[in-house]
Design a protein around this nucleic acid. Sequence first.
RNA 1: GCGGAAUUGGUGAAGUGGUUAACACGGCGGAUUGUGGUUCCGUUAUGCAUCGGUUCGAUCCCGAUAUUCCGCCCCA
Length: 426
Amino acid sequence: MQKPKGTYDIFGKKADQMLYLRKLMNALMDKYNVKYFETPIFESSDLFHRGVGETTDIVSKETYDFKDRGNRSLTLRPEGTAGIVRCFIENKLYAENLPLKAWYFGPMFRYERPQAGRFREFYQFGVEMFGSYDPIMDAEVISILVNFFKMLGLKGIKVNINSLGDSESREAYRKSLISHFKPYLDDLCEDCQNRFSKNPLRILDCKVDCDKEFMKKAPKMTDFLNKESVRHFDMVKKYLDEMGIDYVENPNIVRGLDYYTHTVFEIEADIKGFGSQNVLGAGGRYNNLVQNIGGPDIPGVGFAIGIERLLLALEMEGIDITSNSDPEIYVVPMGKDSVLKAFNLVNVLRLSGFNTEMDYNNRNLKSNFKNADRLHAKFIIIVGEEEINTKTLTIKDNSTKEEFKIKLDKLVEFLDDKILSTNDDK
RNA sequence: GCGGAAUUGGUGAAGUGGUUAACACGGCGGAUUGUGGUUCCGUUAUGCAUCGGUUCGAUCCCGAUAUUCCGCCCCA
């Protein structure tokens, strides 16, 4: 039996890293007063068709669709935003004090050819904020993204931003694109011919046609932004400047999801050999999505980060984020008669707050010392007949090799002192 | 979805159309049932991704399948 293509097991170091990231997210989200959400792994297929967009590649060729036994059409979520928006509407959270800030972390599913940093089941961390048109929200979302990467110690990250304008600007731009591309319809690639009628904006993003002459002459979005859209974009940039966040304006960012309006952004890691996978996180504003999915006219803005790529980036940058979970104490019972007492001692130590491990296999002393080393235990406690009789334990400090004889009732006090003082050193 | 490469034990890997698949690390046991991480000895793949085919005989040749990796597309 083998795992399905593009999936992976999480254990050992990877599990440590995941837990570490979650801890970091948790702490960071608290600072911004962003609340944790969990929505279903699968949703009605319709949600993604309407939310993400019928014409996007994600929906048209990458979803895991299936019928359940009640013949309902369901889809494994290919991204996090649609589910959060559905939850926001269904639970009428818009009736509460807005803006509402949400974050999520969980698996997403896309039927794609796997590569380094890209899987069919992959994890995303994302933030969504509802209920404010103010560009300050866009700036806050971008700042969270940037701060998250900063906290991890990643260097050389680049924020690309662009504006797609409001629906009025976009409609004007769309019309202009259609009249521009119409004469060249036969020269466009197959995908783009399809995009022409459904979503002409995506043609700009096409990698097949990008070098053709008519592409270079295509009208620019920035020329079609109306006053309000320009003001919004300028304010976002002003806030970013004020916070000292470096960004680059990049008019080619279109994004592959249909719901974006106004600000869109991507975070790029400048890492060798990352190739086309160098976008670690991306997002933008979506003022019409809530309404499109059947809710009231409430704006939103958010981002998502791909965890696998992030971990890959951290590894390539030599940043170790595993936390130390080695046992502090390793208890060795000497002889079968001591196991009972040793086991109880382990229990007491654990309840006293120490990470404690013991020998379960009746190993000889030599193997036990080896094992304690392997586990990187700080202290070794030997429990034998002699120790039980005299109620005095032998404790060995595994780093200094010092040995101590400690009365049983003084043990916790002794360890508290020892372990806390070594922790302080760090 | 398209193009290319790879797949040998717990790990890193060498290797060959013919009765024992090198070497290293790790693991286990012992020299050393109360003090180790050194050293020494022993042991550790009836099997070389899976299934078929060619052959007297295949881990090695051929085909299919699976998975992984790289590029494209797309995306996080």
